[in-house]
Amino acid sequence: KTYTFRVRIVDEETGEEKEIEVTAKSEEEAKKAAEELKKKYPNLKVELE
């Protein structure tokens, strides 16, 4: 079973919002993916929905 999570990304500089879908095998995995995004884009606000 896989879970699909919507991750909302807000670029703090431009105020631009993007939504991406993360497919993960567990909620834990999705959280890790969101953390990776935060590391990659430090000025983005990442929200897991």
Rank of each mutant, 00 (worst) to 15 (best):
V10L: 10
I20W: 12
I20N: 00
E13A: 12
E35W: 11
K32C: 10
V46M: 08
E12M: 14
E36F: 12
E29R: 02
T4M: 09
K38D: 02
A34R: 06
F5W: 13
R8H: 06
K32M: 12
K39Y: 07
V7N: 00
T4C: 14
K32Y: 11
I20Q: 02
A30Q: 02
A33F: 15
T2W: 15
V22G: 02
S26A: 01
F5A: 01
E49G: 11
E16H: 06
D11W: 04
D11I: 05
V7W: 04
K45A: 05
V22W: 07
E29C: 11
Y3T: 03
E47T: 14
R6G: 01
V10M: 08
T2M: 14
T14P: 00
V7Q: 00
K40D: 04
E13T: 12
K25S: 14
F5Y: 11
K18T: 14
R8K: 10
N43Y: 11
V22C: 13
K40R: 11
L48S: 05
Y3D: 01
E27L: 15
T2I: 11
L48H: 06
Y3R: 05
E27I: 14
E29N: 03
E36I: 09
G15P: 00
I9N: 00
K25H: 14
E19G: 03
E27N: 06
K1G: 08
K32D: 06
K39I: 09
K38H: 05
L44W: 13
A24K: 02
T23N: 07
K32E: 11
A33Y: 15
A30I: 07
E47M: 14
E17F: 14
K38W: 10
L44E: 03
K31D: 04
E16M: 09
K39E: 06
K1L: 09
K18E: 08
V22D: 00
A33W: 15
E28W: 11
Y41G: 02
E49R: 08
E27H: 12
I20K: 01
E19R: 11
E12G: 06
E35F: 11
I9A: 02
E12S: 09
K39H: 09
I9L: 12
I20S: 01
V10D: 01
E29Q: 06
A24S: 04
D11K: 01
E36G: 06
A30Y: 06
E17W: 15
N43I: 04
E47P: 04
A24D: 01
S26W: 02
A24Q: 01
T23H: 14
R8N: 03
E13H: 10
T14R: 02
S26R: 01
L37A: 02
